[in-house]
Design a protein around this nucleic acid. Structure first.
Lengths: 194, 194
DNA sequence: TGACATTCCACACGTTTGTGTGGTATTATG
DNA sequence: CATAATACCACACAAACGTGTGGAATGTCA
């Protein structure tokens, strides 16, 4: 529903906000070569009523992007033969990088050592993105401290007891004792190339 | 070299900048309960001369973090027994999410179908982060169009010819013909849980 | 001890910036 | 066709904001 002008303004806002300093009304006017601040306010009002931005009163540069306006990296799904790969129809979902930012203090990457999780495709030296939390549920992949050692395992809850289950037949199940502590939950596995 | 006060100010700045709107001098004063704007300017000058922030003149909220001050998601490496997991000493590197942003238009995720790359730990339904580029080098993992079909394979260059090599013994090597086109290069593999 | 950085204060000046009013012309939209 | 939304303008006002001056207390380090 955005006009071409509004779309361009939104792109500019996104760019500037991401760079760390949202623009003032007059900076937007300069960017789009309009001589009146009233014109820019028309833009912003339109984007505001359409739900793309939120404005705070009497604060400089106070332009906030809504979830709707956030730019995400597209996830391309199954691509039928003969169709351009990056066509809009193929976009299955979006990977929201902005959200990663928001909870940054809660996250860390852990480099996996050993092959105890190779059964689920996690190889030695892979990175797992861990969300810090002291508890987890049955089936969650967790990072755990056992007597000072740190391991990645699948958490299992059987007969009112918790167990750490490796995803490799060469390793055995470890019961979760008082000396153990769940550091966090694996939410993503990442392997970087090059 | 930062004093406790300066460190706290920097943490506050980082928080506010990441949230999208850097604070004004008076907002900083309010946060730290000092009644003079001059005091805050002292803080900022110190952080500036020590190389943590960059200030622009006569612009509101114009506080920029330097690379030195940027907070990235820490990558935790090998953790020896008895040491807290998240201790600073264990930080192996940082995953710079800011850099992902910069080249956002060049990136997309592709959901992998099939098990032709299972030999390198890429499983069906995994996501690969692809950087758009029409050429690649021997050994690069690439996304390729062959007669309209899209596949992920390893690129091989032998005897002046290019081949697409699956990482699974059940599949065979495919020569790169004129009907084929390299869409981009896989730079990261990602698997999301939950 | 002396030079220096740090951490605070008060107050005033001038620019930046958001706000508001009142227009006009063009382009949807039902 | 009429109403609404859009896209522009000029100008003025008040609040927000960065800047500057001058001072004082404290701690650091050679």
């Amino acid at each position: 529903m955005l006009t071409a002008k509004q779309k361009n303004v939104l792109i500019f806002l996104r760019q500037r906000i991401r760079s760390g300093l949202p623009p003032t009304i007059r900076e937007i006017a300069q960017e789009f070569k309009v001589s009146s601040t009233g014109t820019v306010r028309d833009y912003l009002k339109a984007l505001c009523t359409k739900g793309y931005i939120i404005l705070s009163e009497k604060k400089s540069r106070a332009i906030e992007l809504t979830e709707k306006a956030m730019l995400n990296i597209p996830i391309i799904g199954q691509v039928p033969a003969g169709v351009p790969v990056l066509a809009v129809e193929n976009v299955e979902d979006y990977f929201n990088v902005d959200k990663l930012f928001a909870q940054q203090d809660e996250l860390f990457f852990l480099r996996v050592k050993g092959d105890s999780m190779i059964g689920v495709g996690i190889m030695p030296d892979d990175l797992v993105l861990v969300k810090k939390q002291p508890i987890a549920r049955d089936g969650d992949m967790v990072v755990c401290r056992i007597d000072g050692e740190v391991t990645v395992k699948t958490l299992r809850n059987k007969d009112k007891c918790f167990y750490l289950q490796p995803e490799n037949k060469n390793y055995s199940i470890i019961p979760l004792t008082e000396n153990s502590q769940i550091v966090g939950k694996v939410i993503t596995a990442v392997r970087k190339y090059v």
